[in-house]
Design a protein around this nucleic acid. Structure first.
Lengths: 242, 242
DNA sequence: GAGTGGTCTAGACCACCAT
DNA sequence: TGGTGGTCTAGACCACTCC
């Protein structure tokens, strides 16, 4: 008998959490409609949504815009220090990856991109937009920029599988270094639409810059992930100790 | 003149975002009260809170429970591949770190901890709870577990600075490897109270296991961060290429 | 003690998804 | 086309912070 009076939405939230943890609802199962859930749990739709939103924020459930709420399946572990490809690391974790090319185009570097690459403005870049799925769920949008001068004829390649494999096999690329940043962003507009999230929903933005053997920056990526789909995990050997 | 009709809270959100981006509000400045803001922006408190919550979710503003909303200062960059200490990497980014020891105790390993460490249940562990500040803002709670048998007399040390430094200087420790996972959690109860967040707010949970020169797991940490305080950034050299 | 943020009531309308 | 989720109205009370 705890004396503390918990807010209603926390009680509702705990109840739902427990329901899901107890596996009474399977991964990707759709929750009942908000109105029905609210009635069942003897609360209002507003309070229920408070609880649902909190569960969404920590990734226990996910939402598809105007479609409803679903139980989040186990997330993909991603190790930035291990240079595996999406198609491989998803498959190795027992899920089915899929890639859809949205757009491929040759563009001229604008100020921002020229700055990132350290090249002249209006240099030619190959821009690639892709949507990637895990078990047929839209989980990530990526925007890839590549130095066109380093990969002649690149635009005619097949990008629906692993880009890195293409670069290695067709162009003999060797990657020497990559740098990452990860932060939270609001998923908006086109990105939100493709990922079926409500515009403004938080997501993970993973930026990567890739360097070739000569130390040149040849690729810059921005990946926008549904926040519940990803987990970072890494293993670091430490050598230069004090 | 865009024809699309944006939801009100997105308009409010964009307005606030722009206000903050334009630096018309300084880092850590307190926003006006919700009622006043709502009136100024000609909206309701409910809609305003929708906008504030979204800005909070991506870390543009942060909240202190019952105190109000504040502009988020630039976040600390943390590089898991670089074994610097909190006190050092915060200072090196021009901010002032502070550590408060909440509790130090010798405990017996329960099933979970015994499993993590790979030791017998009821083995002795040193447990350390600390609250850490950046520029006097509470940003992270950590729970540290150390194998007591490896560090005799540890409990009498001063933990208000760098633990790692103590372990190195007093016990000659050499760290060979660390592994990390990062995921989103709900900050609740004591943790929420210490970080001044509303219970249930999402936060980052960073788990670390540290191994000594002999490859033994000697330390296990759980860090709970205010989500807006941290940014991951890392640089990885790739060698074992296909 | 005044005013704040946290929670909640009891609705409503709309655009869109599923059928 | 019915029901869904997304958005919004117009309040209210309470516990707490700040003065």
């Amino acid at each position: 008998m705890t004396a503390t009076k918990l807010p209603q939405f926390i009680v509702v939230r705990n109840y739902l959490e427990q329901l899901i943890a107890a596996k009474r609802m399977k991964a990707n199962a759709k929750l009942p409609s908000e109105r029905i859930l609210a009635e069942d749990l003897n609360t209002t739709r507003r309070t229920l949504r408070e609880a649902l939103t909190q569960l969404e924020a920590v990734g226990t459930i996910y939402r598809q815009d105007r479609r409803g709420w679903f139980v989040t399946p186990p997330r993909i572990s991603y190790d930035p220090t291990n240079p595996a490809f999406f198609m491989d690391y998803v498959a190795s974790q027992g899920s089915e990856p899929k890639t859809q090319v949205l757009d491929v185009e040759l563009i001229k570097a604008d100020e921002r991109l020229a700055g990132i690459f350290g090249i002249a403005e209006k240099s030619e870049l190959c821009r690639l937009f892709r949507l990637r799925y895990i078990d047929n769920r839209e989980v990530l949008i990526e925007r890839i920029y590549l130095r066109a001068d380093k990969f002649p004829g690149l635009i005619n390649q097949d990008f629906s599988h692993s880009l890195t494999k293409v670069l290695k096999q067709e162009y003999g690329l060797k990657i020497s270094r990559q740098s990452f940043t990860i932060h939270l962003v609001a998923l908006m507009n086109d990105i939100a639409k493709h990922l079926l999230v409500v515009s403004g929903t938080p997501g993970l933005c993973l930026k990567r810059t890739l360097y070739n053997e000569a130390g040149e920056l040849f690729e810059y990526d921005e990946e926008f992930w549904r926040p519940e789909a990803l987990q970072l995990k890494m293993d670091v050997k430490l050598e230069s100790q004090v």
